[in-house]
Every structure is written in structure tokens, then in C-alpha cells.
């Protein structure tokens, strides 16, 4: 009897995660979608953003988000995979045990601290060495690349480690070097997990807000070079939510709806890839 009640109770509790997910989708869409229908896609996909006067163009922000995310991926993926391969294949057990938690610590550093480091170190650096205002696509990409690195490392590391030892031994027995084994055998074998890690990293980059606000400059135009200032979907929400009312607020929720849809799609793809292992 007691066991039956406990089971029913725990079942209700266990559905809380999926239930909150549903609740989040409901409220974000309920606030955002009506405006998208009211304003029309033509209005939404323009570059004219004056939400208090009926112009809800979020195109430059979408372009901004895409540029910053692409830049973050270039840095996050190259450094992330380098760390993963170095840890998993080229270092001893002790080094792995020491370095892995250190790299994972990067994930624990609050995003405002990353943004702050961007302001005091990277923005002046980019301004003096590359030109432009310093608050730029480039700056945001570098900081975001560092921020998504631990996500990429921890997931792709697990999948590299999951490749059976016999694969490596077989390859070495055939006379292949470690690096040849990594490139020709291990990376293809761990492909699903690595892709899952990269997609989740991409989701983190698109969704990051506070660090981007602090370093991207937030100018409302489509950037022409990586040294131009840029504004993302997330920045717009966070910058304007504090004072927005009426249709303006609805427009911010419309940005949130776009973001939420992209994130859920990315998550589903990542979960699929992870499941393939």
C-alpha cells in the first residue's frame, strides 16, 4: 500500500521536468506568437526595429546571433576538440584526472565574469590591434568560444573514451601512429558524440546573454565586418525587457519564441546523435 502511494507520488514528481518545459513553451509562445501573426512575417523579417512604433524587424539580430555563434563555434570547436584529443589520447591517467576538472571549471565561471574579462582585456586589445570600437563580433566570438568549450570537451571526451580499446590496439598493431589512429579511426568512431557536443555548444552560444551584452556593442544594424558592433536576439530581450510594455514586450517574447524554437530543435538533434552511440 505504502509502496503504491510512493510510486504514484514519484511519478507525478518525475513528470515535473517535462511539465515545466511545456509550461515554459506555453507562456513564451502565448506572449510572443500573437504579435508575429499580427505584425506579419514581412514586418518581423526586416531590419527596422522600432517596437514602440509598430516596427518589429529582428533580421539584424538574427544575423547578429548567427555571426556570433559561428565565430564562437570556430574557436570553441577547434580548441575544444584539441583539448579532448590531447586529454583522451595523448596524456597519462594522472594528467587526465588533473586537467579534465580544470577545463570543466571553465563552465562554472559565471557569464558576467566572462563579459567583464571581455570588457577589461579583450575589447581594448581588439580596439588597439585590429581597429574598430572593440565591442565587436570578433570579441564576442572569442569569449563565447571559451564559454562553450567545456560543453564540447565533456561530451566529446566521453564519446572518445567509449571507443573500445581494441580499436586502438588493432590500429597500432597495423603500424599506424597515434595521430593516424585518431584521425582515421577514433574521430569517425566517436562522430555521433562529438557532433552532439558541438550542437549543444552551439545552443549555449546562441542562448548566451549577459556576456554578449557586455562585449558585443549592441548596435542595431547588420554588421559588415567582424570588427563591427552587433546585437543578438538574446541581448535585445535582456536590454529591453526591463521597461518594455504592450506590443514592445510581446515583440521581445517573439524574439524569445524564435530562440526557444531554435534551441529545442538543436536539443532534439543533439539528443538523437547522443542516442546513436
Amino acid at each position: 500500500m505504502k509502496d503504491k502511494i510512493a510510486e504514484k507520488f514519484l511519478m507525478v514528481v518525475a513528470f515535473s521536468a517535462i511539465l515545466t518545459l511545456a509550461l515554459i513553451s506555453f507562456f513564451i509562445f502565448q506572449q510572443g506568437l500573437p504579435l508575429i501573426f499580427k505584425a506579419g512575417l514581412h514586418n518581423i523579417f526586416s531590419t527596422h526595429w522600432a517596437p514602440t512604433r509598430g516596427h518589429f524587424g529582428i533580421l539584424s539580430m538574427i544575423v547578429g546571433s548567427i555571426m556570433v555563434t559561428a565565430g564562437a563555434l570556430i574557436i570553441g570547436v577547434s580548441f575544444g576538440l584539441a583539448c579532448t584529443i590531447f586529454l583522451s589520447e595523448f596524456s597519462s591517467g594522472t594528467i587526465q584526472k588533473t586537467l579534465k576538472p580544470i577545463i570543466e571549471l571553465l563552465a562554472g565561471i559565471p557569464s558576467v565574469v566572462y563579459g567583464f574579462m571581455g570588457i577589461v582585456i579583450l575589447v581594448p586589445f581588439v580596439r588597439t590591434h585590429f581597429g574598430g570600437p572593440g565591442f565587436s563580433v570578433l570579441t564576442a566570438s572569442i569569449i563565447l568560444g571559451i564559454m562553450i568549450l567545456p560543453t564540447i570537451v565533456s561530451i566529446s571526451y566521453d564519446s572518445l573514451r567509449a571507443v573500445p580499446k581494441t580499436y586502438r590496439e588493432g590500429s597500432f598493431a597495423l603500424g599506424a601512429t597515434k595521430w593516424q589512429t585518431v584521425v582515421m579511426l577514433l574521430i569517425p568512431a566517436a562522430r555521433s558524440g562529438i557532433i552532439a557536443g558541438i550542437i549543444l555548444g552551439m545552443g549555449r552560444a546562441i542562448g548566451e546573454t549577459m556576456a554578449v551584452i557586455m562585449i558585443a556593442g549592441n548596435a542595431l544594424k547588420i554588421p559588415h565586418s567582424i570588427l563591427d558592433s552587433v546585437r543578438t536576439l538574446t541581448s535585445t530581450i535582456a536590454l529591453e525587457l526591463g521597461y518594455a510594455t504592450g506590443d514592445h514586450r510581446a515583440a521581445l517574447f517573439a524574439c524569445g519564441s524564435f530562440l526557444f524554437i531554435i534551441i529545442v530543435i538543436l536539443n532534439i538533434i543533439a539528443i538523437r546523435f547522443k542516442g546513436k552511440e
Binding site: A14, L19, I237
Partner: peptide, 18 residues
């Protein structure tokens, strides 16, 4: 249930804020 937890894990904090 796993899907719910995984998906919620990937939701950016600004969405939680909204």
C-alpha cells in the same frame, strides 16, 4: 522524462528569465 530533463538543461537562462 529523460527528454524533458535534457531539453530543459539546454534552455538558455534568458528564456528562464522571460
Amino acid at each position: 522524462i529523460s527528454f524533458g530533463a535534457d531539453c530543459l538543461n539546454g534552455v538558455p537562462s534568458i528564456i528562464f528569465g522571460l
